[in-house]
């Protein structure tokens, strides 16, 4: 007897296509751009071609920060120089994009003024010609100002501003994106209704065009809530495909969160009853890979990552599945 199976008939809606980066033709200075979205099915499914592969943007910080030892070893030579750091991840680690996190702007860290932080953004834009993501410090009072200034100096480059969230003045971030031609990262915490609400506000209240929104529904590490993160993303993507136009946007994951899991960084198990955990140099990267991989299957398009081995293997598996 022949095997037969039908395609899914209620995946009628396409995920919005969003392009990051602008070449000189479009008023920017990037050599290449990255387009996310456009899916008409779950990732890699035979139901419909997936128009764009997954992309990886590698984290760069505007000051030295605490990192797991296995990660840090790769960045010691550039840790004081964001521009060199950015160059290194593109040149040596095959990053498709670079994320510059302006964490020193946090009032509790260095309280770097927005204007000064914006200089780092300019340096990074000079140093590399891939599209970039600009992240604040996560401080809800400070971030809008920091991202406004950054958006201004990055005018025309179509960067991703990370992020608008419900607990800060998202209108300012939306406006900065619209005024300077950027894309907004709509970040919520593992809750599908909050994601709908924020997207709706960005579209209806702030008039952000549909082609300028990417979602970050939050990534929790393998063993530390990945079950929520996976299912949240899967539900969001399925709802989008079935026509919920508040959710038909590409998704991004802060995959680096995987390094928060003790299995990724601790020398050995704190529990005597556990079997030997083996060398952490190998445990850490695979923790980041499996965290990202699970989310890629849930529909995530773009990964923010840190360890070069993780970047390499995640790209290899997602590209193999992509075909």
């Amino acid at each position: 007897s022949r095997f037969e199976v039908s395609k899914v008939d209620n995946w009628k809606n396409k995920i919005q296509e969003v392009t990051l980066g602008a070449t000189s033709a479009d008023g920017g200075s990037r050599k290449s751009t990255v387009t996310l979205g456009g899916e008409n099915a779950l990732p890699y499914y035979f139901d419909a071609e997936m128009p764009h592969r997954n992309y990886v943007t590698v984290d760069v910080f505007d000051m030295p920060i605490g990192m797991a030892k296995a990660v840090k070893g790769n960045y010691e030579d550039v840790i004081n120089d964001p521009a060199e750091w950015a160059k290194k991840v593109v040149r040596d680690f095959n990053a498709d994009m670079v994320t510059i996190h302006l964490i020193s702007t946090d009032p509790l860290i260095k309280d770097t003024p927005a204007k000064e932080a914006a200089k780092v953004v300019e340096d990074v834009l000079q140093a590399v010609d891939v599209p970039i993501v600009i992240g604040g410090s996560g401080n809800p009072e400070k971030d809008p100002g920091v991202l406004e200034k950054a958006a201004e100096v990055a005018e025309g480059e179509r960067v991703l501003l990370a992020s608008a969230s419900l607990n800060l003045d998202y209108e300012r971030i939306a406006k900065a994106a619209i005024d300077h031609g950027h894309v907004v990262l709509s970040w919520t915490q593992l809750e599908i209704n909050a994601q709908k609400e924020l997207n709706r506000k960005l579209m209806k209240q702030c008039n952000v065009p549909r082609d300028s929104i990417i979602m970050d529904p939050t990534t929790a590490a393998l063993g530390y809530g990945l079950d929520y993160a996976y299912t949240n993303m899967e539900r969001i993507r399925l709802a989008g495909l079935m026509g919920d136009d508040e959710l038909t946007f590409p998704m991004s994951s802060g995959t680096t969160n995987a390094w928060g899991a003790r299995e990724a960084w601790m020398v050995s198990s704190p529990l005597k009853q556990d079997s030997d955990w083996g060398p952490r140099e190998y445990r850490g990267p695979i923790w980041e890979i499996v965290t990202g991989l699970a989310l890629s299957l849930a529909g995530n398009d773009m990964f923010m990552m840190m360890h070069p081995t993780s970047v390499q293997v995640l790209k290899e598996i997602t590209q193999t599945l992509y075909g």
Binding site: G223, Y230, Y282, I317
Partner: peptide, 30 residues
């Protein structure tokens, strides 16, 4: 991991390195 997520009910594996077994166990639990 791919086939734990997508419908594998049983699998034959070779590596017994903890850095293979630990993520396998955790993704299954997830």
């Amino acid at each position: 991991s791919v086939f734990t997520i997508k419908y594998g009910d049983i699998m034959i594996l070779h590596s017994t390195e903890p850095y293979a077994m630990l993520p396998e166990l955790h993704i299954r639990d997830t």
